[in-house]
Design a protein around this nucleic acid. Structure first.
Length: 860
DNA sequence: TACCTGCATGTGTCT
DNA sequence: GACACATGCAGGTAT
């Protein structure tokens, strides 16, 4: 932030950009007065805000002359044009001279608009063509400009004639009004174009309406609505060119190319409640802003924001947070076009500090800078982490801080942890990336003043991620298609060019395109993978198989054999392990085609798409037409692993909508006092030790003593241990409470009826097991599981960070609860933290990786 | 050893 | 092929 001198060469008063000291704003805020001499400064606010480095040299889009915004004393001033870019004042003046004279416009412009569908979209070329007579403004050049505007439809001559007079009227009216509103300064102020009812159709029209300003101060539906003036340059007094300049924020909006066509549905409703991508206000950049960066903010939110700030809020752009954006590095990659359009021009890579207010009015200072990148620039905002975190914690609020739609999303919530731990377990970087894309930052600008405002909204859920890029959908009136809660908003979390999050999710075309375009598995998450994300924690573990091609390397250490896999695990098919009366173990796999269950050797590797014909072990059952071997429901409970039972318990405790999570199940198990032994033998016979391990696995994870001795010292204060203890304590308290409730219930039920008693017996069984578990635990911990006693648990054997909750032998051991809590603890750690602390990369759940997972404990 | 910084690289999209 | 952008990574710096 530097200071600069008054443009009045006789004055040369120094102004401070830090506090705007030395500048006073005229009414309307478009021009400043030098504190010293009182000379008027157009763009003063703009320059204060955006040209601290006193750069700002631009190229006239018409004649190519190098001009300056005027923030420094310069005789070569430029003006912003409605159709983007700048023009030197000479060219701008010429454009202005060619413009028609003001004419009053009818008040009921709304009806006019409605009856002239092409009016707003096609007006611009009319104006331009009518104005151009000077040989310097060749038609060709202007057509080029109009193309830049995005006027993708060339109006017919009939339409041109028809609309021309109207346009002139509107334009002139706006001038008159603006002038009267801001008589102290003959500058072009913001249009009071008020959208009578900013429906989607209107929005569409506005897309191609360069002068549309997001005038929030005007009540919607004002009868005094006037059309915006599509005047390039917007100069009112040609002999005072510098006074005619538009403020940065109120210059012509940059029109993005290919405005989406309105659908039939798009006309149905008002957009006041819908999250439509808004064509942003014009910036300096010549490059065009892609629709995915259009801010998606409802009229209502805008109005409230403007009310909060008591100013006009102009949404500029929005950026969906990528994983790296939301990471700890604190660097937010800014879209180049947005950065160049709305942020100060910077010439040095170090950039400049830039102050941005959040929706609460809190001011943040970021470093706006760039990196050279392939002969281009990569713009970043540094130091955004605190702000983003702050916003995430407030994400239940709308961008304006009012509770229009409570989202309640918090990375500390259990639900989020569930996703995070699932991400880790699944070891899919794309999922981790997708989960970050919950938020989009919306950059806006306060007018007058030019102060930048940053808000956020929830951008996506993990289920609707990775929509391919499509033109923005304006038919957001479809129920649930776009909402501030973001339930159906699509994120842009893919790599490279982010997907357009305005993509309506229901388009089959998009599906086709998605299928066609998905090349990068790392960055795209296909539907199948999305569904994989929804599987529960247990399911995820259950589905892991050693990579078919990978042979474990067996290493013997201290008499134990360790299996180490080089390849990461793969997803397999859900299987059910059964134990025959003879003690022989088998597995049941379900055909992916006919859904029949087939008995297979326990050693069989069952792929995710296993079908009957893959049954090489039993040729008589190698066809889907063959009768089903055995259905799990036909099995005696004793012979089937208790997965189903456990699942029922967990499912009963969770909402039926959506899949219950593994952590839900774990928590339920803990709270309900479910015997973890159930979980222990849930994969009995096959994966008793580790999710990806098979019978007989002797890797370091599985052979690890249940006590976990040697892992962590009892007094270990590492984050893992502390969290384990804390979580353990909480869980045990909840468990005990719930248990007492259940016991009371059971006592009550005993007196009811025999049938109730029968049911009661089952519950007693569960409760009894839980009680036993609890008692054993309390024996170890001493009593109530307070912190000290929990630590005593640790003394008993340290913390086993590798223990498997399914291990039956752990259940009744001293660390019986620890298995669960260890997992909970694991869940409590964001993936990076977990990986960072454990030195493990979710590359693989191989034995080696798991061994790495204990690194923290071992070093403790 | 962890963190920070700056650049390089890979991938998707656009022209 | 050029460009944009997400992210990896090496080297420097702080703890």
């Amino acid at each position: 932030m530097g200071s600069k001198n008054c443009m009045n060469e006789a004055c040369r008063g120094t102004t401070s950009s830090d506090s705007k000291k030395g500048w006073s704003l005229k009414s309307g805020g478009f021009a400043g007065l030098c504190y010293k001499c009182g000379s008027a400064y157009e763009n003063s606010v703009y320059c204060e805000t955006y040209h601290q480095d006193e750069s700002g040299w631009r190229e006239c889009r018409i004649c190519g002359k190098i001009v300056h915004c005027g923030c420094i004393a310069s005789k070569h001033l430029f003006e912003y044009m409605e159709f983007g870019g700048v023009a030197c004042i000479t060219c701008a003046k010429r454009l202005e001279i060619q413009s028609p004279q003001p004419v009053q416009v009818p008040n009921n412009i709304t009806s006019i608009k409605s009856t002239n569908k092409t009016f707003t979209r096609e007006a611009q070329p009319v104006v331009i063509e009518r104005r151009v007579e000077d040989e310097k403004f060749s038609t060709q050049k202007l057509l080029q400009l109009t193309r830049a505007i995005g006027a993708n439809s060339v109006p017919s001559s009939v339409e041109l004639k028809k609309d021309e007079s109207l346009l002139r009227s509107a334009e002139s009216s706006n001038r008159v009004q603006n002038h009267s509103q801001n008589c102290s300064s003959p500058v072009f102020v913001k249009s009071d174009y008020s959208r009578p009812k900013q429906g989607v159709k209107d929005m569409y029209e506005s897309l191609a309406l360069p002068s549309l300003k997001f005038s929030l101060s005007s009540p919607l539906g004002s009868s005094n609505s006037v059309l915006p003036i599509p005047v390039p340059g917007g100069i009112v007094e040609a002999n005072e060119p510098t006074k005619g300049s538009l403020q940065h924020g109120q210059r012509a909006r940059h029109i993005s190319p290919k405005p989406p066509k309105p659908s039939s549905e798009s006309n149905k409703g008002s957009s006041s409640q819908t999250r439509v991508p808004r064509p942003p206000a014009e910036g300096r950049g010549r490059s065009q802003l892609l629709p995915r960066y259009w801010p998606r903010i409802t009229d209502q939110e805008l109005q409230q924001l403007s009310g909060d700030f008591k100013s006009t809020i102009i949404p500029l752009f929005e950026k969906t947070l990528s994983a790296s954006d939301a990471g700890r590095i604190g660097r937010l990659v800014l879209p180049k076009a947005c950065a160049e359009a709305y942020f100060p021009t910077i010439n040095q890579s170090e950039g400049i500090p830039i102050r941005i207010q959040d929706i609460k009015g809190k001011e943040w200072t970021f470093q706006f800078r760039f990196w050279p990148n392939n002969n281009s620039r990569m713009y970043v905002l540094e130091g955004v982490t605190p702000c983003i975190q702050n916003m995430q914690l407030q994400a239940g609020d709308t961008v304006n801080g009012n509770s229009l739609s409570k989202i309640k999303f918090d990375f500390e919530t259990f639900e989020s942890l569930k996703h995070l731990v699932l991400s880790f377990v699944l070891a899919l970087p794309s999922i981790a990336t997708s989960l970050r894309a919950y938020f989009a930052l919306i950059f806006s600008r306060i007018d007058p003043g030019g102060q930048l405002v940053i808000g956020c909204r929830k951008a996506a859920t993990n289920t609707d991620v990775q929509e391919p890029q499509q033109p923005p959908a304006l038919n957001c009136d479809s129920p649930g298609e776009a909402s501030f809660s973001g339930i159906n908003d699509t994120p842009t979390s893919n790599g490279g060019r982010a997907s357009d999050d305005s993509q309506p999710p229901h388009l089959t075309i998009s599906e086709k395109k998605k299928a066609r375009n998905i090349k990068n598995k790392r960055l795209h998450m296909h539907n199948n993978e999305a569904s994989e994300l929804r599987v529960t924690w247990e399911e995820a573990q259950e589905l892991f198989r050693p990579a078919p091609s990978s042979e474990p390397t067996v290493v013997t250490v201290d008499g134990y054999e360790f299996e180490e896999f080089e390849e990461p695990p793969v997803f397999g098919k859900r299987i059910i392990f059964i134990t025959q009366p003879s003690g022989e173990q088998e597995q049941l796999a379900q055909c992916n085609s006919c859904s029949k269950w087939r008995r297979l050797p326990v050693s069989a590797l069952v792929s995710a798409k296993w079908i009957c014909s893959d049954n090489t072990w039993d040729s008589s059952r190698a066809m889907c037409s063959a009768p089903e071997d055995l259905s799990p429901i036909d099995l005696k409970p004793s012979s089937v692993n208790k997965e189903n039972k456990k699942r029922k318990v967990s499912e009963s405790a969770v909402s039926k909508e959506g899949e219950p999570s593994g952590l839900d199940a774990l928590a339920n198990a803990a709270v309900l006092g479910d015997n973890i032994a159930d979980m222990g033998d849930y994969s009995a016979g096959a994966t008793t030790k580790h999710p990806r391990h098979r019978p007989g696995c002797s890797c370091i994870v599985c052979i690890q003593p249940p006590s976990g001795k040697g892992k962590h010292e009892p007094t270990c204060k590492c984050n893992v241990c502390l969290t384990v203890r804390r979580r353990f304590k909480t869980l045990m308290m909840r468990k005990k409470k719930r248990q007492s409730e259940r016991e009371a219930e059971l006592a009550q039920e005993k007196e009811d009826s025999k049938s109730a008693a029968k049911l009661e017996l089952e519950k007693e069984d569960i409760a009894g097991l839980a009680l036993l578990n609890m008692n054993n635990l309390e024996k170890e911990t001493g009593s109530n599981g307070d912190h000290a006693n929990v630590e005593e648990t640790s003394k008993g054997g340290g913390l086993d960070l590798n223990c498997d909750p399914h291990r039956e032998d752990e259940i009744l051991a001293d660390a019986s609860g620890m298995s669960l809590t260890t997992l909970m603890n694991t869940a409590a750690f964001p993936m990076e933290v977990y990986a960072g602390q454990n030195g493990a990369v979710p590359r693989s759940e191989s034995c080696s990786a798991d061994g790495g997972g204990t690194a923290e404990g071992q070093e403790g």
